[in-house]
């Protein structure tokens, strides 16, 4: 009744390895999401689950269904493709929304629009800011 008992030993070890790799990475990612301070740190944590976390479990299910149905079963790979394509979209939208909200509140931790303009002008603006600082220093003296 149960196809699991006919599973070859090598397949069982491979499935176990990829399952535990995927689930373990996803758990570490969610742990990081829970523990890390600050939104921009946390945004890195779930990508563990969506990169190799998903890949490990998808590979395990490809191996399992291919072995038990004695033919190459590739449809779990579609989940991997779907997750790879959608995760960047959600994370980019979310981080842009967070940046927008932080800028609207004048949060000092995020790069402001003016700062971005300065850095894009490269070294020229750097020397400018140095001279400005010096002139402030002399003015105080």
């Amino acid at each position: 009744m149960n196809p699991v008992t006919d599973l070859p030993l090598w397949a069982a070890w491979l499935i176990a390895f990829f399952l535990l790799l995927g689930a373990g990475l996803t758990l570490i990612g969610s742990f990081g999401l829970f523990r890390l301070p600050g939104f921009y740190d946390r945004i890195h944590a779930p990508t563990l689950g969506t990169s190799w976390g998903t890949a490990g479990i998808v590979i395990a299910s490809v191996i399992y269904f291919s072995v038990t149905e004695s033919q190459l079963v590739l449809h779990p790979l579609l989940i991997g493709v779907f997750v790879t394509v959608t995760t960047p979209v959600t994370l980019i939208l979310l981080s842009r929304a967070a940046l927008y909200r932080d800028r609207a509140e004048n949060n000092p931790d995020v790069p402001s629009l003016q700062l971005l303009e300065n850095t894009s002008q490269e070294s020229g603006s750097k020397t400018d800011s140095v001279t400005v600082h010096e002139s402030i220093g002399t003015a105080k003296e």
Binding site: H44, T47, L48, S51, P88, L91, I92, S95
Partner: peptide
């Protein structure tokens, strides 16, 4: 490039 940078843990595409 956006997919690569966001898909890789440790870097996030902001703007």
């Amino acid at each position: 490039l956006a997919v690569i940078i966001t898909g890789t843990p440790g870097t996030a595409w902001i703007d």
